[in-house]
């Protein structure tokens, strides 16, 4: 992935990642926006790689990255690791989190986890038609208010709502806003430990990454990943540690 190639360049395209549970229509949205014919199929897990495509909107060019479908970002599987690493290291200008309207509760787990990493998010509630068939309605305004980021409803297969989605994406990149989006409220015990860890974590990585999120990952005991992060955002700290591959190599391996 040549994201580094673009950084520093004035007219570099905005990098937009497309995240979501398996089989919520990410690839359909990807195809609709980029005009590419990425293989879509009605079975979960068919996007194994990060497919990439470009599109332009209002004279701005965008690079869209279709992440593999995942239920969470806890890196319990290869797909989850790929998606997490891209959102964390790829530093996309924006992440569209696609949710299926018909199973919003399960899908929200992922959205909340993405919001812990970055506030640069637009929520896309897809498959509104399917939900309607099952008599399920989603209060988009309420959702947007509760999450603190824009929420757009779409039916990607017919193209309904995609213009609004693009509009929201462009606007959000232009002005990410200052409000902190909704953060998961953990049980008291976890919150206390996190509060204790945050200042220590901040010494390691500064403000490059949400320290709260990193503190939580410490509790997940995902050591290899912590080292990766520290090395990426503060390379001089890690001289001599176990992981010797450079970030570029790593990213290449990831993408």
């Amino acid at each position: 992935m040549d994201i580094k190639l673009f950084t520093g360049h004035k007219n570099r395209p905005h990098v937009v990642a497309l995240a979501g549970n398996p089989n919520v229509g990410k690839s359909t949205i990807f195809n609709a926006l980029t005009g590419l014919r990425q293989h879509t199929g009605n079975w979960p897990g068919k996007t194994v790689n990060n497919a990439r495509g470009t599109f332009s909107y209002k004279n701005k060019s965008f690079l869209l990255v279709d992440l593999p479908g995942t239920y969470s970002l806890l890196a319990r599987s290869v797909e989850e690791e790929i998606a997490r690493d891209f959102i964390c290291f790829g530093q996309p200008d924006l992440t569209i989190v696609v949710l299926a309207a018909s199973s919003l509760e399960r899908n929200l787990n992922l959205a909340l986890q993405v919001l812990e990493i970055t506030p640069r998010v637009v929520i896309c509630v897809n498959l509104l038609d399917e939900a309607k068939k099952n008599n399920i309605y989603v209060d988009l305004e309420g959702l947007s208010k509760r999450l603190g980021v824009p929420a757009i409803g779409t039916v990607a297969r017919t193209g309904q709502g995609l213009d609004e989605l693009l509009e929201a994406v462009a606007a959000r990149i232009e002005d990410p806003g200052t409000n902190q989006p909704r953060q998961v409220v953990y049980s008291q015990e976890v919150e206390e430990i996190v509060a204790f860890l945050i200042p220590q974590v901040q010494r390691l990585v500064g403000t490059a990454i949400n320290p709260r999120w990193l503190a939580l990952r410490l509790l997940d005991s995902d050591r290899a990943f912590i080292e990766k992060i520290v090395q990426h955002f503060n390379p001089q700290l890690c001289i001599g540690t176990s992981s010797e591959i450079s970030f570029d190599q790593h990213l290449e391996a990831v993408i």
């Binding site: 929200l108 959205a111 399920i136 509760r146 953990y186 976890v190």
Partner: peptide, 17 residues
């Protein structure tokens, strides 16, 4: 805890007929 948060939000914004 993440699940509980998601459930709470979904409860508030999803309307079933």
């Amino acid at each position: 805890d993440i699940y509980a948060n998601a459930a709470q939000i979904a409860n508030e914004v999803v309307v079933r007929n």
